[in-house]
Design a protein around this nucleic acid. Structure first.
Ligand SMILES: [Zn+2]
Ligand SMILES: [Zn+2]
Length: 682
DNA sequence: ACTGTCGGACGTTCAACGAG
DNA sequence: TCGTTGAACGTCCGACAGTC
């Protein structure tokens, strides 16, 4: 697993079996030559993050986790956003990456509106530019809207109803935008250069790049997450399960993951991550981004937002640049009582903050269309959100504060406006298939992952208590896994804080106590186990057994039977008869070259003897079991380091090249053989 | 048709760095 | 102190071969 210092991004790729003539350094997918892309978009916690194409409206109940939210700062760079929300005083609120705040234009009906902006790389900019020219002139909201529609056409889907509080379209996602006081820097923004150049820098999009727009049941289907070249960015789960990791196949955020469900693997657990080594000197960095804040000087920086004072200087260059790539960030200012103007998150509050003492942020969460109101009220006052914190120094802080605000109320991943919290009788929530039912209460996440059921720090598997129950038929493993769970939660997540300490010893009880609203996911596990217990065992795996799905995970009714070869390899490669892992446990042995350097520079380390010393979780006989055994008496990394030191002393081994033994009480983590034995992959 | 293997592209994280 | 950088580390695409 360990990747050699010469990472793939920095060395020409070696010829491979698949591409023996590979002499270039151009990635086969993704970025053009020489382009280093940073700030990626993934599905850190929610599989819907990178995709708004599902027709399943239920998907849209899913909130971002805090980390996902923070990553929105960058995600929004490559995403269309449609934000429709309502505020007490504002007749409507409408924004997207192309932000338009209509709150100042009261001649539009009071309504929840949303536009689906279709951004074109080569837009007809005349209308846009014309609007820019007239920014300082009074203009009606209809004209503004028209200009946008024209600019973004084709195609554009708009859904502006006649004044009902009705989001009649399953377009959602918790889009977040900034709202800033524009009074002091509106002129800069009005220049238009800030946004467009910014976007151009980030997207690096060519003339043939475009956002795709498909069809939805209401005519809305946006392919978000398109990277350079129009290619959709690859979504990654935050952490793959051990099986998917070994097979190098796509995992899912659910536990058991989709692949394990498909293949009937019932010990789908999160893989273990190797602690990042520290103390490595890196040498001087090249340059700081502030040195190329001028337009175009650092096209690949994800933070190359021109400073406001530079905007005027470069304004004349702006329109020519618009001609080849355009990602359309412009803003229509207003001077209403709120002085609010939407900007996209990437506009980086810091830049604005520095230039504008009046700056404040406001976070607007989209009205969740799955919160349906029986009375289609035309009174915008009926849906009111609490004011969000002002004067936050970052979007993340603002979001964190907003979400953790005692005024924020959440249930099943949906935020309730406080005035709706007392009108539960009029509120219908549609549970998300991707998120568990949650107690009705404050937003259950934090930026530290504390209490966030979808953060990396808190494995979903623990939230669902899959671990103790699904492997309960393996003798003695429940206790071990309990220890594992304890160990894994040592890094400070608060998963257990919501649990009743009196029930920690039992996974099922943990489960029950963690879902105090009566929802008991353990029933899912019980169902699975009940069904599986009636099936036939094949290498300890329940196979060929019809499993009814009582779960949000859509367990297939038929579990695929593994090939005989798979089973033979499986049983031959491990002494553990119950190994559910298809294939051999030899983890890609040919990924290491004769020097022990990983085949592609990614994987494996060697010792002084030239022996590969990076056994993986899957190398040898049941490394996972050994991990469990170790964790049975887990005393933290320090203890492990101590053990490593003892091992070295006892055996006189000197083959730990870069391992550092750190004394008790030091929080640093040792490296080298021991760590690799425990953590190594590939 | 399906599965396992695996090169290596692609994505994420976070300690080191360095500007203010 | 805090934002940026970029290496470390992770995921998983997609070609390929083997099996049923
Ligand atoms: Zn998986
Ligand atoms: Zn799995």
């Amino acid at each position: 697993m360990q990747r050699h210092i010469s990472d793939t991004a920095y060395l020409p790729q070696r010829p491979s079996r698949l591409n023996p003539n590979n002499t270039n350094s151009r990635p086969s997918r993704g970025l053009p030559v020489g382009v280093t892309q940073r700030g990626t978009m993934s599905m850190p916690t929610s599989p819907i993050l990178g995709k708004i194409s599902s027709a399943d409206a239920g998907l849209w109940n899913s909130p971002h986790t805090a980390e996902a939210t923070s990553s929105l700062q960058i995600q929004q760079e490559s995403s269309l956003q449609t934000v429709a929300t309502q505020r007490p005083e504002n007749p409507s609120y409408l924004t997207s990456n192309v932000s338009l705040d209509l709150s100042d234009h009261k001649d539009l009906p009071h309504t929840t509106q949303f536009l689906v902006m279709h951004l074109q790389s080569t837009p007809p900019i005349s209308a846009y530019d014309a609007q820019l020219e007239n920014m300082n002139s009074p203009i009606s909201s209809q004209e503004l809207l028209s200009a946008q529609l024209q600019y973004h056409s084709p195609p554009i889907h708009s859904a502006i109803d006649g004044g009902e509080t009705n989001l009649n379209c399953p377009v959602s996602a918790y889009h977040i935008s900034h709202t800033i006081n524009t009074s002091s820097f509106a002129p800069q923004l009005q220049s238009g250069g800030v946004r467009s150049e910014h976007r151009d820098d980030l997207f690096l999009r060519g003339p043939d790049d475009h956002f795709k727009t498909g069809s939805h049941e209401c005519g809305v289907d946006i392919d978000m997450d398109l990277g350079p070249g129009g290619r959709r960015k690859r979504a990654q789960v935050r952490i793959a399960c051990t099986h998917c990791q070994k097979a190098c196949k796509k995992c899912s955020n659910t536990r058991p993951c989709e692949r394990c469900v498909k293949y009937g693997l019932n010990d789908c657990i999160d893989s273990t991550r190797k602690p990042r080594k520290t103390g490595t000197k890196r040498g001087p960095y090249k340059r700081r981004s502030s040195k190329y804040s001028a337009i175009g000087s650092h096209p690949y920086s994800s933070h190359s937002v021109p400073q406001p004072h530079l905007v005027q200087r470069n304004e004349n260059n702006h329109r020519s640049e618009l001609n080849h790539t355009h990602t359309s960030h412009f803003h229509l200012t207003n001077e209403n009582s709120h002085g609010n103007m939407n900007i996209d998150a990437q506009s980086s509050s810091n830049h604005m903050n520095q230039a504008n003492p009046d700056f404040h942020q406001d976070v607007v969460l989209m009205t969740n269309p799955n919160l349906t109101y029986e009375s289609h009220s035309t009174n915008p006052q009926q849906i009111t959100y609490p004011p969000f914190p002002k004067a936050q120094t970052s979007l993340v802080q603002a979001i964190s504060s907003a979400l953790s605000s005692p005024q924020s109320h959440w249930i099943n991943g949906q935020r309730l406006p406080p005035n709706m919290q007392t009108k539960s009788g009029n509120l219908k929530t549609r549970p998300s298939p991707l998120y568990p039912k949650t107690p009705n209460g404050p937003f259950p996440i934090s930026l530290t992952g504390k209490g966030d059921p979808f953060s990396r720090a808190v494995s979903p598997i623990r939230q669902f208590a899959q671990l103790p129950t699904l492997v309960s038929d393996l003798d003695g493993l429940s206790e071990e896994n309990e220890d594992l769970e304890v160990a894994l939660t040592q890094e400070g997540n608060g998963a257990r804080e919501q649990l009743d300490p009196n029930h920690v010893s039992n996974g099922s009880d943990i489960l029950k106590t963690s879902y105090r609203d009566g929802h008991d996911p353990s029933r899912y596990n019980a169902d699975i186990n009940n069904h599986l217990s009636e099936g036939d065992h094949v290498d300890g795996i329940q196979r060929e057994k019809e499993v009814e799905s009582h779960t949000p995970f859509d367990i297939p009714s038929k579990i695929r039977k593994p090939s005989l070869r798979t089973l033979m390899l499986d049983s031959a490669s491990t002494s553990r008869a119950t190994s559910p892992v298809p294939g051999t446990h030899t983890k890609h042995p040919d990924r290491f070259d004769s020097n022990g350097i990983a085949g592609n520079g990614n994987r494996g380390v060697t010792n002084n003897n030239g022996t590969i010393e990076s056994p993986t979780l899957f190398d040898g006989v049941s490394m996972v079991d050994e991990v469990n055994l170790h964790l049975e008496h887990w005393a933290g990394w320090d203890h492990m380091n101590h053990q490593k030191a003892l091992l070295e002393t006892t055996n006189g081994q000197t083959n730990i090249e870069e391992g550092r033994v750190i004394g008790e009480g030091n929080n640093s983590i040792g490296e080298g053989l021991f760590g690799d034995m425990m953590m190594g992959l590939h």
